[in-house]
Nucleic acid binder design. Structure first.
Lengths: 204, 204
DNA sequence: GCATTTACTGAACAGTGTTTATTATATTTG
DNA sequence: CAAATATAATAAACACTGTTCAGTAAATGC
């Protein structure tokens, strides 16, 4: 059964080839401008071939969005050995903010665009998102237990913190912060300052 | 010069016709599915005619996005005679949240989508957005003066509050709150609870 | 060696935003 | 009033898009 095995490997390899090309093109020129024909050209296959490996365009971008979560979770794991839960919470926020500013296209796909989630809608759950949320929920729960932040339901508090940072980032990424742009002040700096203010209000 | 006047009026009427049709279709089926040909069909003109009145599709949606701001600002004016600045701030948040949940498509266009802002990018400012932000900034400044909320720079504080509510709403609208969905709990309720928690942390 | 499965593709379908050459009408001028 | 001009609208085309499907060529199983 070696031939069958090889064939399966080859199939996975070509699937990987499509994903890698799509990722490259996506990070270079964004979602809209990355067409099936673009990807097909890049990997030197016909557009129809891609549909032998993916049901639709959004399925490719679902995989890419998962890669984004892998990157984010890796950051969470790498830079988070802090024992004090509040400090860890602050660090979590900084990591999240930094990830978004460093990988705006990934962030867009993961948290703003409708594309990657269009298929999961009914039949499944948003696993990638739920996993990352756990990091936050755990730290928040610990903060609440040790009474380091304003009391509330762990889920509500976690959602609040996530919403806050996401709000900052998404307004920035989708260019709505122009109205708040003081002369000479860099936007990323404003974001960091805002996060500091928020943490100040949160602290008990 | 009466003929010229009438012609000008007619021209504005047709422009209005396009906008009204586009708005109707947009609220019925969203941005992507509202095509120039759709609008042309609806008003019984050829697609090319629309380009005599608008430079590009996004220019139409820029106008619609401005209409959204008119609606929001009207809400701000109507329901906001509260004298206590902190209560007024809380009310402002509720109005904003309510507007978003009642008009999710308008909200998307105003604060999430790239489309309407694509043309302003270089040559102009985002007037509509700046005007609405002023309502918030004024109330926040008053709250800070009367030391009702945690101290900070008025601009940073305003940006923080806006970001927070926008974060809640945009995660909800773009369906990222599934991971936080407790059994039976309605999402809009969670949003309101989160806003309450945030206001609690803000209060001094 | 032949039948069958597998992998791939060209071409087409139904759409999209946008441009341009052309036509029909209305207005102005001689 | 007739000719010249200005205005308004459009049919058709361009260059794209995601997606499907019939047909082909090669590899595999018997």
């Amino acid at each position: 059964m070696s031939i069958k095995d090889r064939k399966e490997r080859d199939k996975l390899d070509r699937r990987k080839l499509i994903i890698e090309s799509a990722t490259k093109l996506f990070l270079e020129q964004g979602y809209e401008k990355t067409s099936i024909r673009n990807i097909a050209d890049d990997i030197e296959y016909s557009p129809a071939t891609i549909y032998l490996y993916f049901k639709e365009k959004d399925e490719i971008f679902y995989v890419i969005h998962e890669q984004g979560f892998d990157l984010l979770n890796k950051e969470f794991i790498n830079h988070n050995q802090i024992t004090d839960p509040f400090e860890r919470l602050a660090e979590l926020g900084k990591i999240y903010l930094n990830f978004a500013l460093t990988n705006p296209d990934y962030y867009d796909l993961m948290f703003i665009m409708r594309a990657p989630l269009s298929e999961i809608k009914c039949h499944s759950k948003w696993e990638a998102g739920e996993n990352s949320f756990q990091y936050l929920l755990n730290t928040v729960t610990e903060c609440l237990d040790k009474k380091l932040i304003v009391d509330g339901d762990p889920l509500i508090v976690s959602m609040s913190i996530w919403s806050y940072v996401h709000g900052l980032i998404s307004l920035f990424i989708r260019e709505r912060l122009q109205s708040v742009n003081i002369e000479g002040e860099q936007n990323p700096n404003l974001l960091a300052q805002s996060l500091d203010y928020f943490l100040k209000t949160l602290k008990v």
